Amino acid sequence: VVTQYFVDCINMNIQVHVHVNGDEACEQFLRCYEKAVEITGHGTELRPVMVHCQALRYDQLDRVKALGAIPTFFNDHVRFWGDLHHDEVFGPERAQNISPMGWALEKGIRFTIHQDPPVKMPNQILAIHNAVNRKTESGRVLGEHQRIPVMEAIKAVTINGAYQYFEEDTKGSIEEGKIADLVILDKNPLTIDKEDIENIKVLETIKDGNTIFKA
C-alpha cells in the first residue's frame, strides 16, 4: 500500500513528506520508496522528505543519499527530552545518536532542522543552538560526534530549507536576484561563544525587501 502510494505520487510529480521517527519507520520509507523508484524508473529528483528522523541509523544513510531524500530533524529532542532518552527510552548508547546530523554531514546529505508545533514552537535560533551544542536540560552533551558547525546549522534553516521546497534559486541566501527575505541579529552567531547562541535576538525581519518586524 505504501509503495503504491509512492508510485502514484512519483507518477504525478508530487514530492512526499513522510513522518519517520523510529529506525523501523525510516526503514519502511526507504524500502517502499526504493521499490517505487524501481517501478517508475525515477523519483529521486523529487527530493522526498523524511520528517523527524530521530532514530535514523548510520547504516541507512547511504540509501537516504541514493534516493535524494532530505532528512528534516526535530533536533530539540536532544535538549528537552535527551535525558529521558538517555535514561529510559533508548539507553545511554543509542541516545547519543538521536537526530544524527553529524553523520548526515559526514555523508554529504543535505538536511534541515524544524520544530514540531505545538510540541515546540518555531525558534530557529534555538534550533541552531541545539544543533551546535547538543546539550540536554541537565547539561549533558548527547552525542559529541553529532554536533555540527555553526555555519552548517545556519544552512540547515536557510538555504537547505529553500532547497527542500525547490526554492533555492529564489530564497535561502543573500544574493543578487533572490528575494530579500532576511533577519538582522544583535550578535554574530559565527563569532560569539557557541553556548550563547540561544540568547541572540532578532532586531529586524525583512520580507520581500520590506521590514515586517523591528525590535
Rank of each mutant, 00 (worst) to 15 (best):
G209A: 14
V7A: 10
N199E: 15
T158H: 08
K155P: 03
R31S: 10
H145F: 08
Q146E: 15
G143E: 06
T191I: 15
L190R: 14
N11Y: 00
D62C: 01
P118A: 08
L182D: 07
K135V: 14
G41F: 00
D8S: 10
D83Y: 10
Q96K: 14
I39H: 01
A69R: 04
G68P: 06
N11I: 00
V89S: 03
T170F: 10
Q4W: 07
R57G: 00
T112R: 04
Q96S: 05
W81H: 12
I197P: 13
A55F: 10
V37K: 03
I192T: 04
R110Q: 13
Q4V: 02
C53E: 06
Q124N: 09
I200E: 14
V2N: 10
G41S: 00
P149R: 02
F73E: 06
E176L: 14
M101E: 04
G91H: 11
I206N: 13
D186S: 09
V16Y: 01
D59L: 00
D169G: 13
G68S: 06
L190H: 11
Q115F: 08
N210Y: 13
E198K: 15
K171G: 03
P100H: 07
G102H: 07
S173K: 06
K171T: 08
H17W: 04
G82K: 06
D181A: 11
N160E: 10
T170M: 09
K187G: 05
E167T: 03
D181C: 10
G161T: 12
F90W: 12
D193W: 12
I113F: 14
D196S: 15
Q115S: 15
Y33F: 08
K187S: 13
G139L: 11
G177P: 06
G172C: 11
D186M: 10
K35Y: 00
A55N: 11
Y165K: 02
Q164T: 11
F29L: 01
D62W: 00
I148W: 10
C9Q: 06
L61Y: 00
V16D: 02
F6L: 09
W103M: 12
E88S: 12
M12S: 13
I70A: 01
D181H: 12
N97G: 09
E176I: 13
E204P: 03
A36T: 01
S99G: 12
V20W: 03
G68Y: 05
T191H: 15
E175F: 08
D208T: 07
T170A: 13
L126M: 14
D196M: 15
R94E: 13
V18W: 09
A36N: 02
E45W: 08
F213P: 03
I154M: 14
L46T: 02
E198M: 14
M151C: 02
H145Q: 12
D23R: 08
L105P: 00
K120V: 14
Y5K: 09
Q124L: 07
V20G: 04
R47V: 03
A156Y: 05
L185I: 11
G43N: 01
V132L: 03
V141N: 05
M50Q: 01
P117I: 09
E204W: 07
Y165S: 10
E45Y: 06
E168F: 07
F111Y: 15
N75C: 08
E176R: 13
V157Y: 09
C26V: 04
T211R: 15
